[in-house]
Simulated assay, not measured.
Amino acid sequence: MTAYEKIREIIAKRALYHKTRREIEALPVDLAIEDMGLNPYDAKAIARRAVYG
């Protein structure tokens, strides 16, 4: 992998992380907790695990 490809991958993952975090934070709390089993207050950690593993 070239340096250019690595930078592109890092930027793409960062953008996906922010998108995922915003979407989780935007969920209504009752829907997120009861129906999806997600705690929107943990959006940072959930998004990090989803994107970076």
Rank of each mutant, 00 (worst) to 15 (best):
M1W: 07
M1A: 08
M1I: 07
T2I: 02
T2L: 05
A3F: 02
A3I: 05
A3T: 05
Y4M: 06
E5Q: 13
E5P: 09
K6M: 08
I7F: 15
I7M: 12
R8W: 13
R8T: 15
R8D: 14
R8F: 13
R8N: 15
E9C: 06
E9T: 05
E9M: 06
E9G: 08
I10G: 12
I11S: 09
I11L: 15
I11K: 11
I11V: 14
A12N: 12
A12H: 13
K13F: 05
R14S: 03
R14H: 01
R14Y: 01
R14C: 03
R14A: 04
A15C: 07
A15Y: 03
L16G: 02
L16V: 03
Y17I: 01
Y17P: 00
Y17W: 00
H18S: 09
H18G: 10
K19G: 06
K19V: 07
K19W: 02
K19L: 10
T20P: 03
T20K: 03
T20F: 00
T20V: 00
R21K: 12
R22E: 14
E23P: 01
E23Y: 01
I24M: 13
I24D: 10
I24H: 07
I24E: 09
E25D: 01
E25T: 01
E25C: 03
E25R: 02
A26H: 09
A26F: 06
A26G: 10
L27F: 00
L27R: 00
P28N: 10
V29P: 05
V29N: 06
D30R: 13
D30T: 10
L31H: 09
L31A: 11
L31F: 11
A32G: 05
A32F: 03
I33L: 15
I33A: 12
I33H: 12
E34N: 14
E34R: 15
D35V: 05
D35K: 08
D35Q: 08
D35W: 04
D35H: 08
M36H: 12
M36C: 13
M36F: 13
G37E: 09
L38D: 03
L38P: 02
L38I: 05
N39A: 07
N39I: 07
P40N: 11
P40C: 08
P40H: 12
Y41R: 05
A43P: 04
K44M: 01
A45F: 08
A45Q: 12
A45S: 15
A45H: 08
I46N: 08
I46S: 11
A47C: 07
A47V: 06
R49C: 13
A50W: 06
A50N: 05
V51I: 01
V51E: 00
V51Y: 04
G53W: 04
G53N: 08
G53I: 04
G53V: 03
